[in-house]
Simulated assay, not measured.
Amino acid sequence: MRIFALKSCDTCKKAIKALRDAGHDPDIIDVRADGIADGDLDTIVEKFDTAALNKSSTTWRDLDEAEKTMPIRSLLTMYPKLMKRPVIQNGEVWTIGWKEDAQAEHL
């Protein structure tokens, strides 16, 4: 199990704690500090498309209109913290966010 997260993200912290409490030992990838491997980024964009972008973030609001029309992969490469998080990969299962659907899948 891998979690793409930000160490400073409260939602990511809650997800990691819940997963550990459920007996999982996730590999945590800090998207800002560690980056996102090309293959993982391709999979995230393929599976989640525009849902991979956190459009309620300060980072998104600070982008100019031209940047907001860039391809998703380019945006996430330039601004990894723009990714909606956490993204959790458990085998072939990928989820985004930490709502009931992701919790039901992983807990």
Score class of each variant (00 low, 15 high):
27 D>M: 04
97 G>C: 12
15 A>Y: 02
16 I>A: 05
37 A>N: 07
60 W>D: 00
45 V>D: 02
91 G>I: 14
50 T>W: 03
56 S>N: 14
86 P>T: 14
56 S>H: 06
56 S>T: 11
73 R>W: 07
43 T>I: 05
8 S>L: 09
88 I>D: 04
23 G>W: 09
98 W>L: 06
66 A>S: 10
42 D>L: 04
60 W>N: 02
61 R>V: 04
33 A>H: 12
60 W>A: 02
107 L>W: 01
51 A>M: 08
59 T>C: 11
95 T>A: 07
22 A>N: 14
51 A>F: 10
61 R>W: 06
71 P>W: 10
62 D>M: 15
7 K>W: 09
98 W>Q: 06
84 K>E: 12
49 D>P: 00
104 A>S: 03
29 I>V: 15
67 E>R: 11
99 K>N: 11
44 I>R: 13
54 N>V: 02
70 M>N: 04
70 M>S: 08
3 I>C: 05
11 T>L: 01
25 D>W: 03
80 P>M: 13
90 N>D: 15
98 W>K: 07
4 F>K: 03
107 L>F: 06
67 E>F: 13
79 Y>L: 09
84 K>P: 05
40 D>Q: 06
18 A>W: 04
84 K>V: 05
3 I>K: 06
44 I>T: 09
90 N>Q: 14
73 R>M: 00
47 K>W: 08
47 K>C: 02
15 A>N: 04
49 D>R: 10
59 T>E: 05
49 D>N: 09
1 M>P: 04
103 Q>H: 10
5 A>T: 07
5 A>F: 01
43 T>E: 15
84 K>M: 07
20 R>P: 07
38 D>K: 13
83 M>P: 06
2 R>N: 09
94 W>F: 15
98 W>C: 07
53 L>K: 13
94 W>Y: 15
81 K>A: 11
77 T>L: 11
69 T>C: 11
18 A>K: 14
63 L>Y: 08
95 T>P: 10
100 E>R: 03
36 I>M: 11
31 V>Q: 05
94 W>E: 01
65 E>N: 11
37 A>I: 03
104 A>N: 09
69 T>R: 12
86 P>V: 09
82 L>T: 05
34 D>P: 02
32 R>I: 06
38 D>P: 01
31 V>P: 01
70 M>F: 06
29 I>W: 12
26 P>S: 01
88 I>S: 05
21 D>Q: 15
60 W>H: 07
4 F>N: 03
38 D>G: 10
103 Q>I: 15
2 R>H: 08
68 K>T: 02
1 M>E: 04
1 M>H: 06
